[in-house]
């Protein structure tokens, strides 16, 4: 199980050909109080970089982008009723979707934890 990160502050935890996707703790902190999460339908297909979800704070709405291409196996419906979970546990309980990866080679374009930490440091 390996976790990868994007420059748009998503994470993806990969096991075999499935990946669990969410936004990072850093991103949640930048957004502030999350009040709404809009998730895709199960079965929806996304290419890498497509916006597949929306996360809204009191002040603004932000798109969430697919770290890699894939189709949605499952969405975390609990976020709809408890969007504040994103602030409490962004990289755990507050996962957004599970994806079936369509091209695992895309993962090589993502950052590991150390590289992502350095990337955030630079911001």
């Amino acid at each position: 199980m390996t976790t990868y990160y994007t420059k748009d502050h998503e994470w993806i935890r990969v096991e075999g050909d499935t990946g669990t996707v969410g936004i990072t703790t850093y991103a949640a902190g930048q957004l502030g109080d999350v009040v709404y999460v809009e998730l895709p339908e199960s079965g929806a297909k996304f290419a890498r970089g497509d916006d597949f979800a929306v996360v809204e704070s009191v002040k603004a709405a932000s798109d969430v982008y697919a770290p890699v291409s894939g189709s949605v196996l499952e969405v975390n419906a609990a976020l709809t009723d408890a969007p504040e979970t994103v602030n409490a546990a962004a990289e755990g309980e507050a996962w957004f979707v599970r994806l079936k990866l369509s091209d695992a080679s895309e993962l090589s374009g993502l950052m590991d934890e150390a590289a992502y930490a350095a990337f955030c440091e630079g911001h």
Binding site: G32, D33, V35, S57, V58, K59
Partner: peptide, 12 residues
């Protein structure tokens, strides 16, 4: 300042 460390909701 758009917000302080406690955040918009708490400030509100």
């Amino acid at each position: 300042p758009v917000q302080f460390p406690t955040g918009v909701k708490e400030e509100h």
